[in-house]
């Protein structure tokens, strides 16, 4: 088990390095830059700016300077927001984004699993149909649209919840963002659990368990749940990517102080330093979480450990 986890860590390291390298060179080799404003800057100002950001050095040494910085947790300066380093912006936004993402992940996964399991046991009865309908709505309506609709409904028309923004410690400000972020995630989890639970309940080993007179509750908890969760766990990896994509939207719509907002504004302003830094960070988080998911999978399915 430990050896398996170690192998997975070792394969993840080159992926991070390759991502950093590819993104770095693509962004540096791209035409245009943050200083190509509408007004041309005087040549000596331009020269100073370039020197300040190490842009006058050969590309390869820029790369190693950057890489060295990344290892120390320094993602270089932001090229548009002059007084901030990328690391500083990240340290402001990251805790919020992680908190938001983690809440949505937990809410969506748990709610989805319970709903999916109930629907499977109640197959083709009303709880099942209700779930299928909610899942369809959650998955079909893109979350930027859904976010605007619930904002309009609960925030503007009903005035039950704040329209946006965030005050530390305020749960009310988080209800809608977490709902929007967890709805499609929970929907997909529920759909998967329903399908795999129905399949597992029809397997020979569940029939064996029934022949042993174990009782429905014990069969569900001990014999059916673990194998039924396998497809869900393998979905969690890609699911994290969708959550990330969703958090970009949710932070934008509800004006929340996460890194998604910096990433989008950096992309709009062509702030290469900030785009690069946030991208590396996102990739790192996704890979680290994927690693956890893989290890979890190996725990659930003993056969994987020996591959």
């Amino acid at each position: 088990m430990f050896g398996y986890a170690l192998r997975r860590v070792l394969t993840a390291i080159p992926i991070v390095l390759i991502t950093i390298t590819v993104c770095f060179f693509i962004l540096r080799l791209a035409p245009g830059g943050p200083f190509d404003g509408e007004r041309a800057l005087p040549p000596d100002v331009m020269k100073n700016l370039r020197a300040h950001y190490n842009l006058d050095q050969p590309l390869i040494s820029q790369y190693f300077i950057y890489l060295g910085g990344v290892f120390r947790g320094d993602f270089g300066p932001s090229m548009v927001m002059e007084d901030f380093s990328v690391s500083r912006l990240i340290s402001i936004g990251l805790p919020f984004t992680l908190m938001l993402g983690f809440s949505a992940f937990v809410v969506g996964t748990v709610a989805g699993m319970i709903a999916g399991a109930v629907a499977a046991v109640q197959q083709n009865k009303w709880p099942d149909y209700l779930l299928v309908a909610i899942v369809l709505i959650g998955i079909i309506i893109p979350n930027f649209l859904m976010a605007n609709l619930v904002q309009l409904f609960f925030g503007v028309y009903l005035r039950w919840l704040p329209v946006g923004g965030y005050q530390p410690g305020s749960i009310a400000h988080l209800v809608l963002p977490v709902l929007i972020l967890s709805l499609p995630h929970g929907g997909r989890v529920a759909r998967l659990v329903r399908g795999s639970m129905i399949e597992v309940l029809g397997t020979n080993y569940v029939r064996t368990a029934r022949s042993k007179g174990l009782g429905t509750r014990l069969i569900l908890a001990r014999h059916a749940l673990k194998p039924a969760l396998l497809p869900v766990v393998s979905y969690l990896g890609p699911g994290l990517s969708y959550l990330l994509t969703g958090s970009l939207v949710v932070e934008q719509v509800f004006a929340l102080p996460g890194i998604g907002k910096y990433f989008i504004s950096a992309a709009l302003n062509r702030d290469y330093g900030l785009v690069l830094g946030t991208t590396i960070l996102y990739v790192f988080i996704i890979l680290a979480l994927n690693l956890i998911v893989d290890v979890l999978y190996a725990w659930l399915d003993p056969k994987v450990r020996y591959r």
């Binding site: 992926i15 991502t19 993104c23 693509i26 962004l27 791209a30 035409p31 245009g32 990896g237 890609p238 994290l240 990517s241 990330l244 994509t245 970009l248 990433f263 989008i264 992309a267 062509r270 290469y272 785009v275 991208t279 996102y282 990739v283 996704i286 890979l287 994927n290």
Partner: peptide, 20 residues
């Protein structure tokens, strides 16, 4: 397999940044 694990929307956004 590796590409599957990476959040591809980030790369789309990077492409948009580069090429306008």
């Amino acid at each position: 397999d590796i590409m599957y694990a990476l959040p591809y929307i980030l790369f789309v956004i990077i492409l948009v940044v580069i090429f306008g």
